[in-house]
Amino acid sequence: MTVTRAWLALLLLSAASTGLAASGAHGAVFVVLVLSLAGAKAHVILSRYLGLSAAPPIRAGFDLALGVVLVLFAVLAIAA
């Protein structure tokens, strides 16, 4: 994936987040979907903008840590 394709992917993911929010959806599914889209955007930025696609083990570590953080966010958001 080139940086231009990464940018296009980020635009699509951002549009999906905005569309989801504009739909008026809420609840646990909404929380999981919105945070999953955020995780996907973070993955693209780390991989292509920051160049971690050249260091797969380190990218996997970042993905794991981000996944744990996003699960924590989801649990806290759903608990509210």
């Binding site: 940086v3 231009t4 990464a6 940018w7 635009l11 987040s17 905005t18 955007k41 930025i45």
Partner: peptide, 30 residues
Amino acid sequence: GFAEAQGHLHRAGAGVNTIVLVTSGWLAAL
């Protein structure tokens, strides 16, 4: 209270700002 307070923020503006920042990041990567 958080939901009511969140309604005062510029949600659309923040959405636009997401596009602005990822586009800026693309220019920096180029």
